[in-house]
Each structure stands twice: as C-alpha cells, then as structure tokens.
Amino acid sequence: MSVDQVLNHLKKHGQLLDLEIASATGLAIDQVRKSLADLTSRGEISQCSVTHFNGDKRIDGFQCRISGYVPPVAPGRKAGPTKDGASD
C-alpha cells in the first residue's frame, strides 16, 4: 500500500526528497525509504543520496523522481545556427 502511495505522490508532484514525501503522505520516514528502495529495485524510480545543512545540522536523505522522465521543452525561442553557418 505505501509503495503505491509513494509512487503516486512522485507521479503527481515530480522530483522530491524522501523527507518531503514522508511529510506530505503522513508515512513514517523508514516506511518511505523502504518503499523507495522497492521502487528503485523495480526500476520505476531513480534516486540519489543528498546531504543538506541547516546551520550546523547535517540532514541526509534521498532525492527521487520517476525513471525515464524528461521534462518538457521550455517555451520560447531556441538558439539555432546562423543563416550563413558562421558562429560569433
């Protein structure tokens, strides 16, 4: 149950820290980390370890996102080659 809850939360909100997932879903951090490990082993998410500092306090966690997610292209004009092929 918690694995599905964590996966759905990541699908809805994108890349998040494990602490953010635990806070938003109301699950214990240990339960969230176990769910993330299960999802990583199945290849459904990718995760990396991160360290943040809040003053002198060290906070270790995992940053997670859905595997294979490519963000959409930003709107607006894109840089391209010049007409004569020369670049400045």
Rank of each mutant, 00 (worst) to 15 (best):
A28R: 02
D88H: 13
E20C: 04
R77K: 15
G55M: 01
Q63T: 07
P72Y: 01
L27H: 01
S46H: 12
D30K: 11
L39V: 04
A24Q: 00
R65I: 10
L27R: 00
V32W: 08
R65Q: 12
H52R: 15
T40P: 04
V32F: 07
Q31N: 12
V73C: 08
F53W: 10
G43R: 03
D30Y: 09
L39H: 01
R77L: 15
R58I: 06
L39C: 05
R58W: 11
K78D: 07
R42F: 11
S46A: 09
R33K: 01
A22W: 04
Y69R: 04
G61Q: 00
V70K: 12
H52W: 12
I66R: 07
K57H: 12
Q63M: 08
K11P: 02
A28I: 03
Q15F: 06
D88M: 13
K57G: 05
S35T: 11
V32G: 08
I45Q: 06
S46M: 09
G76L: 06
D18M: 05
A24H: 04
I66C: 01
N54Q: 08
G61I: 03
G68H: 10
S23M: 07
F53Y: 13
L27T: 04
V70W: 02
G43Q: 02
V50S: 09
D4V: 03
I66Q: 01
T51P: 07
G43T: 02
L16T: 05
G55Y: 03
L27I: 03
S2C: 01
Y69C: 05
S49E: 09
S2L: 01
C64L: 04
P81G: 07
V32T: 05
R65A: 11
Q15T: 07
R33H: 06
N8Y: 09
K57T: 12
F62T: 00
A37W: 06
D60F: 02
N8V: 09
P75N: 09
D88V: 14
